[in-house]
Design a protein around this nucleic acid. Structure first.
Lengths: 340, 340
DNA sequence: ATCGTTCCCGCAATCGTTTGCGTGACAATA
DNA sequence: TATTGTCACGCAAACGATTGCGGGAACGAT
């Protein structure tokens, strides 16, 4: 546990140099001659020198840590984004600390603050659903770069990275139309959710473009978009007089709930009612029939988020950037909308 | 971005005290009178003082960060453990940095080293499958506390936390026997895997205890225990002359592969062949019939891992602890073994 | 009056690294 | 020769918190 630390001073003593020279040599400072630089680096190597991270951070006010906050780390899609974040961060020499907000707004702001106090160089956040009180988040912006991904909010002036939800939803609906569906229901979220709204507007746009009547009765809003709610809403949709012939659930889990109750009532999928989800979760190939859904390239989102964040961290200018980046999601057609 | 930092010195100046007094006051040092302690704390509060984490770590050689390494963060069970880790760590005032080894041994050792250099106070690791070259891991033990969880290795002298794999497997097999199954196959891992071996020995023990013949032909070993392999091995098991009447797959994903091919051949589950998995993954209730499996309390494992790790971190003695902790997993009986 | 305690608190060093500034050696230029 | 410039490096301060040591004040006991 003791293990005599190797420090700049030690290297300096051995080489009969000053610590400053050693430091500069290791950092490729132009003031230092090639010869000594080489000498220093060699010794450092052989002594297995590692710079004291604390002293370094202490001086430079840099931790090389980025903080990540997600609502629920248990969701498969979230983990794929996290994977992308970890990869890209490792490449760029950053470590990642992760927190889970459990969709609790208070916890979320608390975590933002802890992370700040803890000295992260930047924060990547995927917001909880009902993040309305932006006031708690805005102060962060002046202190440390913040980038939102996946669950974003256009009320916050910072760069944001999402799926092209609207377009992807549009494509999904168009696919349903192409296979002959004319009465397409949607199950979306009631609480304001950026992604839900985007997908909804893609839905509306597609219907309009194909001159299909929009019927409020088959536009279903739920509080939490879960498997259970999918079941409930499918039940509801079966009970109305003019049944839909397709159901677009804003989320795979809801779509799976829908499929499960349709099967319970022996409704043929996709002939009687087609179903499409959103996420390409791992469940979508386990359920039968396999679910048509939108694949979201999580790793790509994660990587991009890190890329933009580090850009902001290492930029010298202090202006808030405010880009909106969209990553393309792809419709994956499976048995729930298409029979071979 | 500038934002005049609040430091001990500033507080000291305002209160006309020395920084040392302020420091001690904030740390509840007995030398400081109640009155001044109170005064200092109040001012610190109102000034929104946060100790500079770098300076603190610099002095105390403590980062209050623990490193976590997992093979694959995408697995549901892994995320539940991570959740437990995050929760417990947050409570204890530690941050968590996570890395993914992707089941790559080289990456794993590299990550261990990076984390060490980075100054984590301790490391929690779930090992990659084929971690044989313990040599890369042993040096870590002298430098920083290490605890293994889930994927462990009894070759490494440190405390380890697992499910009671053997017992749980025993219970699963006993359940199969109780519902009348007499010829029970197992699909396990070929490569040495601590958990696989444990589950296998539970299987053997249960069969012996119930005087059931052990048949090598229905003991299947595979390289990677995946859904695909589940399908393949199910095919194989169907092809042998004395078919099994139950299949115990060491893993949910393999069990799901098994179910999928059994269904393809119109074999009744569980009447003809019962299936049980291990993990209680989220897939196990999506598949039909719903899968009987062993629920592993991931959060509990995570929490315990953190608890023991912090214990070691904060202990003053330097002796390597070497406890084996087992967390109980519970058999969850569903349709794949039991018809109502 | 002197001594010994106890209670509170300040001084100053310290951790390892970075960095502004200074300096000596030497070469180039006037 | 005197001046200027460049190169390569050293000095020392600084970052903010912690901590061993020492010391003054107050008080009681002798």
């Amino acid at each position: 546990m003791k293990k005599e630390l190797v420090t700049l001073k030690k290297i300096a003593q051995i080489l009969d140099l000053s610590t400053s020279t050693v430091s500069r040599a290791l950092n490729d400072h132009p003031d230092i001659s090639e010869a000594t630089t080489k000498k220093v680096k060699q010794l450092a190597q052989s002594l297995n020198y590692v710079p004291n991270i604390f002293a370094k951070g202490f001086r430079k006010h840099r931790s090389n840590i980025i903080g990540v906050i997600v609502p629920n780390i248990t969701h498969y899609f979230t983990t794929t984004m996290v994977r992308g974040i970890l990869e890209e961060a490792a490449i760029k020499g950053y470590r990642v600390i992760i927190s889970e907000s459990n969709n609790d707004v208070l916890k979320q702001t608390e975590m933002l603050n802890t992370m700040m106090q803890f000295g992260v160089d930047g924060i990547l956040a995927s917001l909880t659903k009902m993040t309305r009180d932006i006031d708690n988040i805005l102060p962060i912006l002046n202190k440390v770069p913040l980038i939102l991904f996946d669950k974003v909010s256009n009320k916050i002036p910072c760069t944001q990275i999402t799926i092209n939800d609207e377009e992807a939803a549009y494509n999904a609906i168009e696919h349903l139309i192409n296979i002959g569906k004319k009465r397409i229901a949607i199950i979306k979220e009631r609480e304001f959710s950026y992604t839900s709204e985007k997908r909804f507007s893609g839905y509306l746009k597609a219907l309009k473009d194909h001159d299909i009547e929009i019927d409020e009765k088959i536009i279903i809003s739920v509080d939490d978009i879960s498997l259970i709610q999918g079941k409930r809403m499918a039940n509801h949709l079966l009970s109305i007089k003019k049944r839909p012939d397709a159901i677009f659930a804003i989320t795979d889990s809801a779509a799976i709930g829908v499929i499960q109750t349709l099967k319970k009532f022996n409704i043929n999928i996709p002939e009687d009612i087609a179903v499409v989800g959103f996420s390409n979760s791992s469940h979508s190939t386990i359920i039968e029939p396999k679910l048509t859904t939108v694949d979201q390239p999580g790793e790509k989102i994660g990587k991009n988020a890190v890329k933009y964040l580090i850009e902001e961290i290492e930029s010298t200018t202090d202006i808030l950037t405010n880009k909106m980046i969209e990553i393309k999601g792809n419709l994956i057609i499976r048995d729930s909308t298409f029979k071979v």
